[in-house]
Design a binder for these strands. Structure first.
Lengths: 202, 202, 202, 202
DNA sequence: TATGAATGAGAATTCATTCAT
DNA sequence: GATGAATGAATTCTCATTCAT
């Protein structure tokens, strides 16, 4: 009648599986990763995975949820102690710069693949849009903060600026996805950053 | 006297097949589209397809080649009668603006999916990079022209500017890939355009 | 508690599949036998076969390995209690004689077909040559033993004699492959045997 | 009503096609050779082939017929001017020796493949046996000749000797089919020859 | 709960043969 | 007669998911 194992145990188990699956997805891509790959990587059984997740897709969704929430929570927390909106934007660019091109490529591939996959499946499109909105609002809030403190120009359309922020960031990642040198990449980030600042200030 | 058909017939046939395949790829995605889907859609036999194209991949490559060449040829031709580099850049943004969001989404999804696919297959990565290079050089040439005529600032790094141009364009497409309104999309293009111009002039 | 079956079970399963495959190969030939034929014959699923053997080729290789090893092990064991090299050679001819012509034909056809197939595929050619070498060395060792005991002439080239031994044996099988009577076959074996002995003694 | 082209033209055409097909079969094997290979090699159309031969198999059979007849006719003709049976046998060994190992391998593969193919098809088995009988009788006749002239021992079983002759020859070819050096091959032919002579004389 | 062997519906690609021109 | 584009059944191999133990 009562569960044989604690809820905590189950959560832990799920987390471990998700971690292993993420590793594989990033390594080979979602479609190319087989359940056997995950099983081999984790050293557990196929059945174990299926007793926690209904399908490969389910794992994917869970993973994206977790990742997005973690990102938002971390940054929100941090920004409480960072009063300047400009600093916050600079911090974001610092994050981009600190990521190696290799890391970026792997992550971007995973990210894009999910988006594409979502684009074909109505029930996922909605979910994806939630993520996108959260990310947008997150930056928009910074922009609004900057307008209030007078750091950014008062007529800045913060929604548009947020769109622009992510567009530039995603486009950059896309540009360097398959080719390009680490040094060029970093230089382009700098260019982007200064361009964005000029846009927000002037 | 014989089915030794004309070259024109063959070209036409290839074009028809490519068109049908593109339809399916856009509908379901490159990987999700099976040869049977294409065959069914076109009402021809599997063999017919394979007598014109060695593989599904080959079809994509042909499509991308065609599209890229058409883009370059059209623009090159047109730009002969358009002496101002700034006008040329403006023309490019006009093209982006003229594409409906729907069109953009379909094409972008297909395009990205293949990029992802190519990223996992060395022989395709190279091919993909060739396209990227061509597109980059195309813009870079415009930038160089603008520097010579004095339209753009003389210390502009035209290679970097070309990267930036495409990054912004791709990022924008990515942003609007799954959500966003047509009107917002156009407005963001305008923002991007003015931002890029500011970058090239100041 | 679990389907984590014993190693013995797996070995048994492999053996069953191999047996079924051999049956089909002998019936229809290696190339003409489809995986579906084997599946139908065994009443199992395609996947089951592929979880034990990576390919049709792999099955053949396994079969050939098993057969060769069994042959070598049996004989080696037996020959420990058979000091005379001449007796050992006679024993080998006895084995040939004990095989029914029908058995020989089926086995030979299968065997040859794979050789032909291997001849066109470098990675298999090597494998095939290993078998041939093992068989050659096996007889060569007998010949060397016979020279030491003085049973065979001291100037016998044992490598050449081994080649000759198998050539005659294979040629005989080939001759009777499609036609000929059981009685003739046995008589020719006798002829061959006496001819070979004369060669080794004189 | 009357044929548009002469019978002679047709025969010539068939011969050309057969020659081209043989070239391909020897190069790649019967099963591995596609009609397209033959068409490409000959520079004619698929339809042309099918208007002369009903199937790939038909070509194969015709080819084997021709080859066997040519071999027999040539040798029979030659042997009219070669009174010694021993010389005739020596001549045959000379032929084997004059064939390069490479040539032998290709030819043997073709030969064997047909045999194997024939073994699975009753209507071809019969035909194959006819060839084999012809070859057997051809040697048997030499043996009988040698007995009459006193060159070979009078109690020689010429049918058995003919079997033996071909067995040794085929076995040798088989032995060297996939591996072995040219020099070894020739030496083994010599060994075989002397062994066979000893058998016929002693 | 955990296990992993088994399933079987596909997937891409090949090629002998046909037949309209 | 000649041509070669078109056909489509057949083939090998994959992999998400199930379920008996």
């Amino acid at each position: 009648m009562s569960p044989k194992v604690s809820q905590a145990y189950k959560e832990e188990r799920k987390a471990i599986i998700l971690e292993g699956a993420l590793h594989c997805f990033i390594e080979k891509g979602f479609q190319a990763t087989t359940i056997d790959d995950i099983v081999r990587h984790l050293g557990i059984s196929k059945g174990a995975i299926y007793s926690y997740f209904a399908s490969k897709e389910e794992m994917y969704i869970q993973m994206a949820d977790d990742k997005m929430n973690a990102m938002l929570e971390n940054s929100t927390e941090l920004f409480k102690t960072m009063p300047s909106a400009a600093d916050q934007v600079r911090y974001m660019y610092g994050r981009f710069r600190n990521q190696s091109l290799n890391e970026l490529r792997r992550w971007m591939a995973f990210h894009l693949e999910f988006m594409l996959y979502a684009a074909r499946q109505p029930h996922l499109t909605e979910r994806w849009n939630e993520y996108a909105d959260k990310a947008l609002v997150f930056i928009q809030d910074i922009m609004d903060g900057g307008k209030q403190t007078g750091e950014f120009r008062s007529d800045l359309d913060s929604a548009a600026a947020a769109r622009l922020f992510w567009s530039i960031r995603d486009g950059l990642a896309l540009q360097y996805m398959l080719s390009g040198e680490e040094a060029d990449y970093r230089r382009t980030i700098d260019d982007m950053e200064s361009m964005v600042f000029r846009y927000m200030l002037s």
